[in-house]
Design a binder for these strands. Structure first.
Lengths: 187, 187, 187, 187
DNA sequence: AATGAATGAGTATTCATTCAT
DNA sequence: AATGAATGAATACTCATTCAT
C-alpha cells in the first residue's frame, strides 16, 4: 500500500493523486484504505519518511571500509551508493525530489531533510580542512555534487541519457574534478 | 493573468492550484478568466511556453560579444546569464523545474525541452572538439553543469544558502573545473 | 449495551450517533455489536421500547395504595412518580422526548405512545366525571399537566432551574391548580 | 432555500437532513447551494436565528394595547400571540423545539434563547410583585405556561388533538388557572 | 462468541466549466 | 467584455453492515 502510494505520488504528485486511485493501486476499496491510514496527508508523510530512510540507509552503508581511506575513495563510495540508490529505488528518488517542499509535509518530515546530507557534509568538511578540496565555501561544493547527481538522474528519467555505469562514471569524474583541489602548478 | 498563474503554479503545482484562486489572483471573475483561456490545461501550457521562452531568451543573449572569445569566457557568460535568470525570474525557474514532467503538458510544450539546452550543448560540443573539455560524454558534461546550477538555486530557495555573487562565483568555479580538461602534468 | 445506546441516542440523536461510537461506548468491537442487534434501526426501537417501558412502570407504580384516595392524592402520587422517573432516568426521559417522532421508529414503537398516558387519562376522566376537574376537554387537561412536567425537566436540563423538591413542588401546585375545578364563589 | 431548510430540519433533524436533500428541496444543484451558504452548520444557525426572530416578533407584537391593561388581558394577548405563531409558523415552532440544544448551534444562536422569553418573564415578574400570581418561584410559573403551550402544540402535531380555538382556549384557561393567585376564601 | 478488516454507498464540500445577464 | 450564479462530477473521508478468522 505504501508502495503503491510511493509510485503514484512520485508520478503524479500529491494533489494529482486521488484517494480512489491510491485505493485501486493498493488493491483495496476506499473504505479499507482508511483502516490503514489516517488521511492523505499522514500517508504522504509516511511515504516521505520511508523514502528518506531508504536514502539514509544507502548513505550510511557507503562509509568506506577503512577510516584511513583517501578522500577520493570516500567520495567514490558515496557516489556509487547514491547511484545505486537512484537505480534500485528510482521511485523513492523521484518522490523525494518532487515532494521535499510540499506544504502538506509535517515538521517531522521536514526535519529529516537536514539529517540526510550529514554524511556528505562531513566528508566535505574533512576534505576542506585537509586542503584536499577546492577553497570555496562548503555549500558550493555540496550543491555542485548533489546537483550533478540529481541532474544526471533527472536526465536519465527524461530519456536524455541512460543511467549506466559508463555515464555514472563519467559524471563521477566531473563531480570529483569540480570539488578536488587543483594540483598546484609546478614551479 | 499569466503572471498570477505563473506564481500560483510555481508555488502550489498544477493540481494544487484552483481556477477560483487563479481568477482571484488575476483580479478577474472566474467567468472573465475563461474569456482569456480555454481551460486549465491550456493555461498551464501557455505559462510553460512563456517560462521556457524567457529562459531561452536569457541563454541566447548570453552568446559572448565576440565569437573568438575563449571557451572559458563563453562559459562565464552562459553561467551568469543563467544565474541572472534564476535571480530575476525565480518563479519562472521554479515553475519550469516543477512542471517539466506533468502529464497535462502537451506535445508542443514538451518539445521545447530539447531546444532550450541547444546553446549549452553547442558550446560543449565546440569545447570537446577543441580538446578544451574533459574527455567524457557530452551529456555527462551538460548534466553536471546544469545540475550544479539547479542544485544551487534549489538550495537557495530552501534557505540553505543565499544566491549572492560570492556563492554563484564559487559554484561557477566548481562547475567549470568539472568540465574543463585537466592541465597535463608538467614534465 | 442498550444502556450505552440510550446515552448516546439521548445526547446526539439517532442520526448523530454512529455504530462505531455505539460499539466503543458498549466496550465491544463493531462486529460483536452485530451479534446482539440486527441493525441500527432495530436497536433504536429496542431502546425506545425499554425507555417507554420504564416510564410505564413508573406510572403504574404510582397508582395510590387505596383506590378510595382523593383525586388530589392520586395526582400527587402520579406527579411525584413522574418527577422521580425524570430524576432517576434522565437519559430515558430525554431519549423519549427527542425520538418520539422519528421516521426510524416502527409501528410497534409508535403504538406504545398511546398506551403510556392511559393511567393519566384514566385519572383525568374519573376526576372530570366527578366534577372535581375543570370543565374543559380532557386533552386540554392532560397536555397542560404533561407539558408542565416536560417544560420543567427541559428547563432543568438547559440549566434554567434545578429539579429539586422545592421546584417540583411548586410546579405540582401550578399543575394541579391548572386542572382542579375552581371552588365555587362563596355566596 | 432557507424555507426548504426549515422544513427539512424541522422534519428530520440536523443530522437526518443531507445536503443533496436540501439542494433538491431548494430546487438547486448541490454546487449551487454552496453559493448561498457557507456550510451546513452555518445554514442551520441561520435558520435557527430566523425562526427565533419570527417568534420574537410574534411576542413583541403581543404587548397589549394599553399598558394599564389587567394582567389577565396581558396573558391573554401573549397566549394568543403564541398560539397564532404555532399555527401560522408550525415548521418554525417545531424546528425551534427540536434544535434548541444542538451541538452545532453557535454561541450567537444560543444567546437568542434567553432573550426570547424576556417578555414572558417580564409579565410574570410584574404579576408576582402585584400579588396577582401564585406565590411560587417565577421559573415554576414560566415553565408551566410554556410547557402547556408546547405540550398542546406537540399533541396537535402528533394528532392527539386539533389546535383549534376551542382547544387553545381551554388550555389558556388551565394555564391561567395554573399561575393566577387563588382567590382568598371568603371570610 | 468475538473480533476487526473489508466494502462500497454515503457524507459534506470544492472543482472546472458554462451561460444568462 | 465582464460577471458571478448554476451545474454535476469530483474530492477526501465516514458510514452501516458483512464475514473470514
Amino acid at each position: 500500500m505504501l508502495d503503491a502510494a510511493l509510485t503514484l505520488f512520485a508520478e503524479r504528485g500529491f494533489h494529482g493523486t486521488s484517494i480512489p486511485e491510491l485505493a485501486a493501486a493498493s488493491g483495496l476499496a476506499v473504505g479499507s484504505l482508511y483502516r490503514h491510514i489516517e488521511g492523505k496527508e499522514q500517508l504522504v508523510n509516511e511515504v516521505y519518511r520511508r523514502a528518506k530512510s531508504l536514502l539514509a540507509t544507502a548513505l550510511v552503508r557507503a562509509v568506506p571500509p577503512s577510516p584511513t581511506a583517501t578522500l577520493r575513495a570516500q567520495f567514490h563510495a558515496l557516489w556509487w551508493a547514491l547511484v545505486d540508490f537512484a537505480r534500485t529505488e528510482p521511485r523513492a528518488f523521484a518522490f523525494l525530489e518532487l515532494h521535499h517542499h510540499g506544504a502538506y509535509l509535517d515538521a517531522e518530515s521536514r526535519a529529516l531533510e537536514l539529517r540526510i546530507l550529514a554524511p556528505i557534509a562531513q566528508v566535505v568538511e574533512r576534505g576542506r580542512a585537509a586542503g584536499e578540496l577546492r577553497a570555496v565555501s562548503a555549500p558550493a561544493l555540496i550543491v555542485t555534487v548533489w546537483g550533478a547527481l540529481v541532474g544526471m538522474v533527472r536526465a536519465a528519467r527524461a530519456g536524455y541519457l541512460t543511467l549506466d555505469d559508463a555515464v555514472a562514471g563519467d559524471v563521477e569524474e566531473t563531480a570529483w574534478a569540480a570539488i578536488a583541489a587543483p594540483r598546484p602548478p609546478n614551479v
